[in-house]
Amino acid sequence: MEDKQIVELYWARSEQAIHETAAKYGRYCRSIAWNILFDDEDSKECVNDTWLRAWTNIPPQRPGLLAPFLARITRNLALDRYRREHAAKRGGGQVELVLEDLEGCLSSPERIEEQLDEARLVDSLNRFLAGLSARDRCVFMRRYWYISRISEMAADYGMSESKVKSILFRTRKKLQRHLLSDGIKL
């Protein structure tokens, strides 16, 4: 079933919408959750919460593309769950490694008191990503949006792991400079 029809089911408040969503995007969302939580049960719960969140948000929303719409929900839910539970569970997920990576984009170890404007940060990120080559952008997104493993990315892209790491390193440094010049202090 195409996305448009699924969305119409949501608007008609038909529970068939959930079934169709799960059939079409279940595996996709589960993989996103798994990369973050590294636990089957937690990932399943996260995906189920994604369907509930979609049900709550459609309507009033009418997403044109369901994949990124659902992916965002799953990612946010998984990260929230990770933050609540990560002190107890250290099961080999990638989130800590990704956060350590992103530390390298911080401009100063000093404490920044001013409130961070998230909208401005997102806008700056979008402009930064627009200026990258597709390869560097995709490597960056796979690592920091999808929280994919370096080994997985290297295998998928036919690159060595060192090359993937090098691309990520350069891109992080470029991001750091970009954010600095945009006046965004992290």
């Binding site: 593309l65 990612r75 911080l106 920044i112 997102v122 990120l125 990503l129 952008r137 949006w145 992290l186």
Partner: peptide, 18 residues
């Protein structure tokens, strides 16, 4: 702040996610 950056990355344009 690293976590905030990670969250903000999650909000970038759909086209980059796709």
């Amino acid at each position: 702040r690293a976590a905030q950056l990670l969250d903000a990355i999650g909000q970038v344009r759909e086209r980059y996610i796709v």
